[in-house]
Nucleic acid binder design. Structure first.
Length: 505
RNA sequence: GGAGCGUUGGUAAAUCGGUUAAUACACCUCCCUUUCACGGAGGAAUGACGGGUUCGAUUCCCGUACGCUCUACCA
């Protein structure tokens, strides 16, 4: 089968927004589609049940844009198969549901939620299937006349699939191979709900056919309902036209067991969404990797490596390399626990790897938020280059580099006070004098003068460099002191020494 | 309970019957750095259990255990 259209179909998370697992599913779809020259398609469920809140759709596309995963066809980008929103396609689904009924492959069920609850309590392991159908209120046992009567009375109903008895259904999965389900183990799923909306089961099959999808990847949690989808394909459009399936492994909690959820992120202190998402109803914020200071390249790289590798031990991949090297056969079958430490490592690697220019603007806005306006872009580039090795997050640049532009707000006096004495005080007073008479401040020259002056005062340079550093940057961190002094210039250097000197008295 | 899927160090994982069972993150030690990092060298740590098949099983098969997913008019 040609790889023409690879689609991912998903609902926003219950509050809106798009979680980690969702983004990874999108990623794998994208990689596979691009690798084979196919179109990469996005479908989003919009039903009342998913609480498809305002802005969720736009948010999802912003997220994909940030990740660099632009779809070729989507509700927002249009395409030849409009309408794309499920809510606008109700009539289409209804027509196919009716066709199934006409063929005896589906039936009307009139049971209320309460009636079903009663049955669930009465019958152990209750399933709506061949074993229980005749105890329930549906067109199969009511007969045509009674059914028509109920329908004409406007009694609320759903349409359920009529599963064959004891039949093996094989689903061929690109990752897992053949998986066999027996129809007696699955129940007569609802296809069309009482409100006229289709369930996922009907909608995927109908849309995939109508929209000419050739490959469909989704999370592993869908595997148990796959036989229903296969049967629907068989009934409606023929197995030959069915897309290839792949069920992706789950992303698990770092501690304990189970699917990773937003709550786990909140509890353990890491984001579980690509970008910040505010639930418009509760105003609760789900934090995102972007705002946490991740580079999209790192985020995508980290996600791709969670459940897939190329077998060579390579860990850092550009999106182009991923497209070239990705293969469904090498996707893991088992779920992977999410490791935030590793995610951080990817980001620090990418901060080192990417040219500073690619994230300079974003870092500048972080500085602006701290009240530091960047006037000189060339100097800014130089500074970022100087400190990027010590940054894990983009936000780290603020602490690592703000002292280049502004005197430190707090000075770690405690780091130098205990060993402070008059001799050291004298040294720095002399240092100020030396600086004042010199013209330009050069790192190498300053280092020589600094050490000579130390020798004259019978002090070890090592004892003086830490205080000097703390005076300039406010703490025990940062690149070489003399380089910092050169970068901030003579006047700022003198001023910072002076302010700390008065504090020390 | 049932069905399906899964199980290599703490985590992510390589191996496609024969290796001292890679590598990366995290951890520890040392070097570099008169700061903090980066970097470099080293260390500790793994095939769930039991049967087969085989000259030989982490690898193939079957059980068991454990975990996960599904079992909604949610997706």
């Amino acid at each position: 089968m040609d790889i023409k259209k690879v689609r991912v179909r998903f609902a926003p998370s219950p509050t809106g927004g798009l979680h980690l697992g969702g983004v990874r599913t999108v990623l794998f779809n994208y990689l596979f589609a691009k690798q084979h020259g196919g179109d990469f398609i996005i479908r989003i469920e919009d039903t009342d049940q998913t609480r498809f809140v305002d802005g969720a759709e736009a948010y999802i596309f912003e997220t994909l844009k940030w990740c660099g995963l632009q779809p070729d066809e989507s509700p927002l980008h249009g395409g030849p198969f409009a309408p794309y929103r499920q809510s606008e396609r109700k009539l289409i689904y209804k027509a196919y549901a009716d066709k199934l009924i006409a063929n005896g492959q589906a039936y009307y069920a009139f049971d209320t939620a309460e009636e079903l609850d009663v049955k669930r309590k009465e019958i152990p392991n209750f399933q709506y299937n061949y074993a229980t159908r005749n105890l329930l209120k549906n067109s199969l046992i009511l007969g045509d006349d009674a059914t028509q009567k109920l329908l004409s009375q406007g009694v609320s109903y759903v349409i359920r699939i009529n599963l064959p008895l004891n039949e093996d259904v094989t689903i061929t999965d690109m990752i897992r191979g053949d998986v066999i389900f027996n129809t007696s183990q699955v129940d007569d799923k609802v296809l069309l709900k009482a409100d006229g909306m289709p369930t996922y089961h009907l909608a995927v099959v109908v849309d995939d056919f109508l929209m000419q999808i050739t490959h469909a990847f989704r999370g592993e949690e869908w595997l148990p309902s796959a036989p229903v989808h296969v049967l629907l394909w068989q009934y409606l459009f023929g197995l030959d036209n069915m897309p290839q399936w792949a069920h992706l492994p789950l992303i698990l909690k770092p501690d304990g067991h189970g699917k990773l959820s937003k709550r786990d992120g909140d509890r353990l202190g890491f984001p579980t969404f690509a970008m910040d998402w505010t639930d418009p109803k509760t105003l609760e914020v789900a934090s995102g990797f972007k705002e946490r200071g991740f580079l999209p390249e790192a985020f995508v790289n980290m996600l791709a490596a969670l459940g897939w590798n190329d077998g060579t031990g390579q860990e850092i991949f550009t999106i182009e390399e991923l497209v070239a090297k990705f293969s469904m056969e090498r996707v893991h079958k088992g779920g992977a626990k999410f490791d935030y430490e590793k995610a951080k490592w990817y980001n620090s690697e990418w901060i080192k790897k990417m040219p500073v220019a690619s994230y300079q603007l974003q870092v500048a806005s972080l500085f602006a938020a701290e009240g530091i306006v960047i006037a000189n872009d060339a100097k800014f580039t130089k500074v970022l280059e100087l400190v990027k090795d010590r940054c894990t997050f983009l936000n780290d640049f603020v602490t690592q580099a703000s002292f280049f532009f502004k005197a430190p707000e707090s000075i770690d006096i405690a780091a130098i006070q205990p060993k402070w004495d008059d001799k050291k005080n004298m040294f720095f007073i002399e240092l100020i004098r030396v600086l004042e008479i010199s013209n330009l401040l050069d790192a190498a020259d300053l280092e020589i003068e600094f050490k000579e002056l130390a020798a004259v005062n019978q002090l070890k340079p090592g004892e003086l460099m830490l205080p000097f550093r703390v005076m300039l940057v406010g703490g025990k961190f940062g690149p070489g002191v003399f380089e910092i002094a050169e970068m901030i210039g003579k006047d700022a250097t003198i001023n910072r020494i002076k302010t700390v000197l008065t504090d020390l008295k």
